[in-house]
Amino acid sequence: MEPLLRVEGLSLAFGGVKALDEISFSARAGAITAMIGPNGAGKTTAINCVSGAYRPQSGRVFFAGREVTGMPAHRLARLGLTRTFQNLQVFGQLSVLENVMVGLHAVTRQGFAAAILRLPAMRREERLIADQAMAALEDLGLSAVAHRPAGQLSYGDRKRLELARALAARPKLVLLDEPVAGLNAAETDAMGQALVRARDLGVGLVLVEHDMALVMKISDQVVVLSFGQKIAQGDPHQVQNDPQVLATYLGGRQEPVNGFSPGAAPNRAEAAHA
């Protein structure tokens, strides 16, 4: 069966630096595909190429049965592909509820004329948007702060808000750029559960993450990048025992390590795993 997302030979260089060198991978619906690798491996660049933020210099991206290489982000969103950001991108001036309501933009229609004339169809759609957005907030336990300005939320709540906003429109695929970076153990655990719930509803998730404990716990497939190249791919167990991965992460030690945590903050990762 054709996977939901298929990336073929993606390459992008910044000046002389090859950020991505012939990267190929795929992601299925209803599965979590994690992309890991040391800092500067090209993980975020890969996400940016798939999500329409960057245009790859060569290579092709297929999504839901059609080629989408270089397609602008807003059109990808309408096809059911959205993303979250490593440096939080909540709409600080909007309320928490309004943030999620923007999340439903891709699946709603009312335009300028309907807005200005405040047509009945537009008001109906507005109520529908508000209801669905509220449901998405409840899923992530944010309904109590729905009417607060999003800029006032704590860091952890903003992370959850980004996920709620991305999931509100029931997308086919969500690209997540470090969803648990900076979260404490309890928040990381809750976020992991939310991701698993979304997966079980059939959403495909591509996860860039340094928290190895989380990655190994929830991923169905792991893709390992290093210096712009894919060095391994497989289920968590295979990847943890791959000699090249171990060499990259642990500097040449060959024995497999169970639940190893070479990410940015090993202590946090172990705590989350426990």
Binding site: Q89, L94, V102, H105, R118
Partner: peptide
Amino acid sequence: SRVGRGLRALKDAPAAAAALG
């Protein structure tokens, strides 16, 4: 309105607004 929300969103964080459609 939906359009107004989209406009206010793109002023705050254009990349995120685009990613949401």
